[in-house]
Structure formats: C-alpha cells, structure tokens
C-alpha cells in the first residue's frame, strides 16, 4: 500500500475512532426515540425515515410529540426549524478548515451537535487532504448508529418495554445527559455560567408551567438577553475603572 493510501486510511480510521464514543449517547437516545415514535402511532418504517432524513435528535422528539398531540402542521415545521436553528452557527465555525470541494455542503447533513464539537477540535489538527475522509468517517458512524438505534427501538420497542419495562423509563435520560456533556465546556467564565444557568432554569420552569412548545426559544432568548446585559455592565465598569 502506498504512503498516500496509508494516510487516507489513517484519516478514515481516526474518524471512526473519534466517533465511537458517540455511540454511547446516540444509541440509547435513538432507541428511546424509535420506541416513543412507535408508541405515538408512527410505523417502524416512518420512524426510521424520520431519523434518516431529519437526523436531529431533540427536534425529532418534538416533531413526534407535536404531531401526536395534534398541533397545527405549520407550527410543527416552525418549531422544528427553530430548535435546529442552532445549526446555523456550526457550518460557519468550521468553514475555515474546509476545502472548496462542492461535496462539503452536501456533507453538512451529518453536522450534528456532537459531530460539530468533534470537528471543531479535530479538523484544525489534521492535514487539509485528510479532513474530508475524517469527517465522512465520523459523520457516517454517527448517522448509521442513529438510524440503527431508531430501527431497534421501533421494531423491538414493544418487546423491549414488555421484557424490560424499566428501560423505557431510564433510557430517555440519555438526552439530558447528552446535552449536559455538550454544555459542560461552556462554563468557562462567570458570564457564561450565569447565562447557561439562567437559560436552563428558565427552560425548566417554562416546561413545568406547561409551555412545552415555547420553552426552548423563550429560554434561549432569556439567556442571550442576560449575556448582553452582563456584557454591557462589564463594558460600563471597564470604562468607569479605565
């Protein structure tokens, strides 16, 4: 095997290795999604197709819940896109590390929260020629595990719940655990910590008040507002002292 081929393989293998830890988070959440979707009246094929095409964890749960509760379809679309609006910032953040290949925009289907977090760390460390191989490998592992997990949950969901009823109760905790891991590196300063805590508390309270659909955008807006208020205060203090 030539050295070029070895390097290519090594980038693909590196992508696979980096993405393997994601399976622990993806598969339990995907199984619980498949299970919940089937319980909400979707067929196994429809559930797998939702995971394959939409491929965005939290918004898929919301999609299922809103459709099942008879919410107007336009609101389901708006809420799904609103939740996924956070993806707007991912592409621009990794753009400086990507070549001008026309395949990159298509590959963005695999740019989930976790793949973004991995890519943002790993891509700058890789040679430019290895980046696409690494990304395809990591994103493919994550995507396939999500689809496979969904299929297992959708097809064997009823059997899993009847044999191990506790699993249905315990597995959905993978979702808050996953978000917590994504948030943990953000607690880097007082400003960010207060912003994150205020957003989490606001979302939790709004959910407990029954505002399930509007809790996420409203809480996020609360957090952004608080961030800017603190920013303005810090600037004012800086001017007063400086």
């Amino acid at each position: 095997m030539s050295s070029v081929e070895t390097a290519k393989n090594s980038a693909w293998q590196q992508g696979t290795r980096d993405a393997l830890p994601l399976l622990g988070g993806y598969i339990p959440v995907a199984i619980s999604f498949g299970l919940i979707a089937v319980q909400s009246g979707f067929s196994a094929q429809e559930t797998v197709l939702i995971s394959t095409l939409i491929y965005a964890g939290a918004s898929q749960f919301l999609f299922i819940a809103m459709v099942a509760s008879g919410v107007p379809l336009w609101l389901v679309l708006v809420m799904t896109l609103l939740i996924n609006a956070r993806h707007l910032v991912y592409g621009p953040n990794i753009a400086p590390y990507l070549s001008n290949s026309r395949w990159w925009p298509l590959l963005m289907h695999g740019l989930t929260d976790q793949i973004f977090a991995l890519a943002h760390t790993r891509l700058p460390q890789l040679a430019e020629k290895d980046r696409m191989g690494w990304y395809i490998s990591a994103a493919l592992i994550a995507w396939l595990s999500w689809i496979l997990g969904t299929a297992v949950g959708a097809i064997a969901g009823a059997e899993i719940t009847s044999r191990w009823p506790l699993l249905g109760e315990v597995m959905p905790f993978a979702l808050p655990a996953l978000f917590l891991v994504l948030l943990a590196p953000r607690f880097t300063s007082v400003q960010w910590t207060l912003t994150m805590l205020a957003t989490i508390v606001a979302a939790l309270v709004l959910k407990l008040m029954g505002m399930t659909n509007s809790a996420i955008p409203l809480a996020a807006l609360c957090g952004v507002s608080l961030f800017y208020l603190m920013q303005a205060k810090l600037k004012a203090e800086g001017k007063a002292h400086g």
Partner: peptide, 23 residues
C-alpha cells in the same frame, strides 16, 4: 466575521433543550 449573537445563541439553545429535557 461571526456575529456575536450567533455564537451566543447556539449554546443557549442547547442549554434550553437541556432544561426542558430535565423534566
């Protein structure tokens, strides 16, 4: 080149999802 509000909105959206999923 990145607008600041965009870089703040991404983590707050994830924080909000975390808050909702905690219930």
């Amino acid at each position: 080149a990145m607008p600041i509000w965009l870089t703040v909105l991404a983590p707050t959206m994830i924080a909000a999802m975390f808050g909702v999923s905690l219930v």
